[in-house]
Simulated assay, not measured.
Amino acid sequence: MTLGRLHLITDSRPGRDPVALVRAALSVATPDLVIQFRPADEWTDRVAYDLAGQLVALCRPLGVPVLVNDRLHVALAAGAGGGHVGADDLPVSAARRLLGPAAVLGATARLPATALRAVGDGADYLGVGPCYATSTKDGLPVSIGPEGLRAVARQCPDTPIIAIGGVTAARVPELRAAGAHGVAVIGAASDAADPARAIADLLAAVAA
């Protein structure tokens, strides 16, 4: 499986526009770009489905994959390329059965044992973190740093590791050195004065 190295996670905080962020990303897209659509907890399935459909329609002509976080039924209904599950979502094995063998499936992990189990249950890649402190999602555990990521990468050497949590372009080299295949970002793009420029810088960093 060839997996892009920059996973842009849409910002579901109030007042943020996921479609506008993805349009900015597509204006500078390279083959390393992956879109992860993260619906807000309070959004109805209909709202999530409508937005996911818009993103798939925008990204498909450019060959940019769209994954849906948490709501795998929305991923299936909207024709997304796959999904991503966290600790409180469907178990990885159940998610794989639901999505089928061809879909891309990611799983969140922060410990080597959890990572190894997720891979054994069918995860194609691992979202590992939070690597650094971040304010874009509430209730996250203590950050694990590059060394925590390195421990997971050593346990799962054949699985792409996507570092998440407080990632910036400047931090990409140390994360790649620790074993990350790529990175996932929210705030580094959506909080930027020029999101397209920020995404271009991140794409350049992961490709270096």
Rank of each mutant, 00 (worst) to 15 (best):
A103E: 04
A57M: 01
D32F: 05
A115P: 11
D158M: 09
L175Q: 02
V183E: 04
A208C: 08
R117I: 12
V183F: 09
R97S: 15
L126T: 05
A115F: 04
G86V: 04
T30D: 02
A80G: 11
A95L: 13
S135W: 11
P195T: 00
G182K: 09
R176N: 08
T136D: 02
R176V: 15
G165H: 02
G86E: 00
Y132T: 03
D41G: 05
I199F: 05
A95T: 14
P14C: 00
T136R: 07
D138M: 03
D17L: 07
R71M: 13
A87R: 15
D70M: 12
L21C: 11
L55T: 07
E174P: 09
L105N: 04
V119H: 11
P112K: 03
C131F: 00
D89I: 12
Q155M: 15
L21Y: 08
G122V: 08
A169R: 14
V64R: 11
D138C: 01
D17P: 15
L62C: 08
D121M: 13
R23H: 01
L90N: 12
H181T: 10
T114V: 15
A118I: 11
R197K: 10
L3C: 06
A107D: 02
E174I: 02
L90A: 13
G148V: 04
S27I: 05
A75N: 13
N69Q: 10
G82H: 08
V185A: 02
D124W: 10
D191W: 06
A170L: 08
I161K: 06
G106M: 02
S190Y: 12
G148W: 03
A170Q: 13
D158K: 14
A180P: 13
I144P: 01
N69T: 12
P91H: 07
S135A: 15
V47E: 12
V92C: 08
P61G: 01
R46N: 13
